[in-house]
Simulated assay, not measured.
Amino acid sequence: MKPQMRRVVKLGRSTLAVTLPKEWVEAVKLKKGDYVLAEEGGENALRISKLKEKYYTAPKVCVINVDSIRSKTLLNRLIIGAYNVGHELIWLQSRRGFKPEQMVEVNKVLQKLVGLHIVEQTENIVLLQSLADPSKPSLDNSIRRLHLLTYSMLDNILRALSEWDKSLLDNVMFTGGECDKIYWLIIRQLLTAVTDKGVSESLGVRSYLWLVGNRAVVRILKTLIRHNESICKGVMKIIEHGIKPDKETLSKVIEIGRYVLQTQTETIDALLVRDIEKANSIIDQIIEKAEEINDISFKIASVVSDDIVKTALLNIIAELKCSLLDMKAIAEIAINRGTEESGSYITIESGVRSEETLRESVSKGSR
Rank of each mutant, 00 (worst) to 15 (best):
I118Q: 12
V119T: 12
V119A: 09
E120C: 12
E120D: 07
T122S: 08
N124M: 15
I125E: 11
V126A: 13
L127G: 14
L127N: 12
Q129L: 09
P134W: 03
K136N: 10
P137L: 04
S138G: 10
L139W: 05
D140E: 14
D140L: 03
S142I: 02
S142C: 06
R144G: 00
R144F: 01
R145S: 04
H147Q: 05
L149V: 09
Y151P: 00
M153W: 01
M153C: 01
D155Y: 00
D155V: 00
N156S: 09
N156Q: 09
A160L: 12
A160K: 14
L161S: 15
L161G: 13
L161A: 07
L161F: 13
E163A: 15
W164S: 14
K166F: 14
K166S: 11
K166P: 11
S167T: 15
L169S: 11
N171D: 11
N171W: 10
V172F: 01
V172K: 01
F174C: 02
E178M: 09
C179S: 15
D180H: 08
I182A: 06
I182V: 12
W184Y: 15
R188L: 03
Q189V: 03
Q189K: 06
Q189P: 05
Q189I: 03
L191I: 08
A193N: 02
V194P: 02
D196M: 02
G198C: 01
G198K: 05
G198M: 01
V199E: 01
S200A: 04
E201C: 00
S202K: 04
L203V: 00
L203T: 00
V205T: 02
R206G: 06
S207C: 09
S207A: 07
Y208S: 10
Y208T: 08
Y208C: 02
Y208M: 12
W210E: 13
W210T: 01
L211Q: 08
L211N: 08
V212W: 05
G213C: 11
R215S: 14
R215I: 13
R215H: 15
A216N: 08
I220L: 14
I220D: 11
L221I: 08
K222N: 15
T223S: 15
T223F: 07
L224G: 01
H227W: 05
N228P: 05
N228D: 11
E229A: 03
S230T: 06
S230F: 01
C232N: 10
C232S: 14
K233L: 04
M236H: 10
K237I: 00
G242K: 06
G242D: 05
G242E: 07
K244F: 03
P245N: 05
P245T: 04
D246L: 04
E248Q: 04
L250K: 13
L250W: 04
S251R: 14
S251E: 06
S251L: 02
K252C: 14
K252Y: 07
V253W: 05
V253K: 05
E255Q: 13
G257A: 13
R258I: 04
Y259V: 08
Y259D: 13
V260S: 07
